[in-house]
Amino acid sequence: MKLIAATFAILLAAPAAWALEAPPGAMACSGCHATSASVDTPAPRLVGMKADDILAAMLAFRAGARPATVMDRIAKGFTESEAAAIAQWYATQPN
């Protein structure tokens, strides 16, 4: 519930076009999370994931509740609302 509320808060707080702009930090994730499906890497793709799932993962990494090699260190750099905006944006990228 909380996750959905956070996502909606972002959508409601901004005009429609805003939700589609890359929010701060979003474009840095693709240094590891390949946007193209043809790249051979163990890092999972974000494009194609649901916003709620991305946000839930980010919050779990941040809290240390989900094991990680590197995402725990990265997720701690983003507030919940920043992570929600990034998650929302990835969910709108065509797969």
Binding site: S30, G31, C32, H33, A34, S36, D40, T41, P42, A43
Partner: peptide
């Protein structure tokens, strides 16, 4: 992951 990163960043 390092090798995967290299493929990702060069593709990007």
């Amino acid at each position: 992951l390092a090798h995967g990163w290299y493929k990702t960043i060069t593709s990007e």
